[in-house]
Amino acid sequence: MSKSLLVISRQAPWSGPSAREALDIVLAGGAFDLPIGLLFMDDGVFQLASDQNARAVQQKDLGANLQALELFGIDDVFACNHSLEVRGLNAPASAQGLGSDAIAHLLDRYDQVITL
C-alpha cells in the first residue's frame, strides 16, 4: 500500500513561490494517485480567501490551481480553524476546518509530513 503524505502549506499566496510549490507537490502526488492530504495553516490560510485579485500585485492567481485539486483526486483538504480566526477569515467551502486536537490526530494519521 502507498505511504500517505500530508503537505502543510504555511505561506500566503503573495509571499513568494512557496504556496505554489507546496501545491505542486500535492498535485504531483495526485497525478500519481498517491494518498495526499493538504492542510492550510498560519498565513497559508490566506490562499483560501475568496475574491482575491492577484493581478493587482502582478501575481498569477493560485485559485485555478486550488480548483484543480478535485480534478487530481485530492479530497482531503483541511484548514486550521485558529489560523482562520486570528486572520478574520471565514471557514472556506473548499477546505474542512479543523481545531488543534483534530490537527494533532491528522498528523498521526499520515505516514509522512512536508511543511512549506
Binding site: 502507498s2 505511504k3 503524505l5 505542486d24 507537490i25 504531483a28 502526488g29 497525478a31 500519481f32 498517491l34 509522512q112 512536508i114 511543511t115 512549506l116
Partner: peptide
C-alpha cells in the same frame, strides 16, 4: 528532475527528513 522523484523517494524510504 521532477517532483515525481520526491514522491518516489517518499514511497521507497522508511523516513522522510526535511530541512528548511
Amino acid at each position: 528532475s521532477g517532483l515525481g522523484q520526491l514522491h518516489d523517494a517518499i514511497q521507497d524510504a522508511d523516513r522522510l527528513i526535511c530541512f528548511g
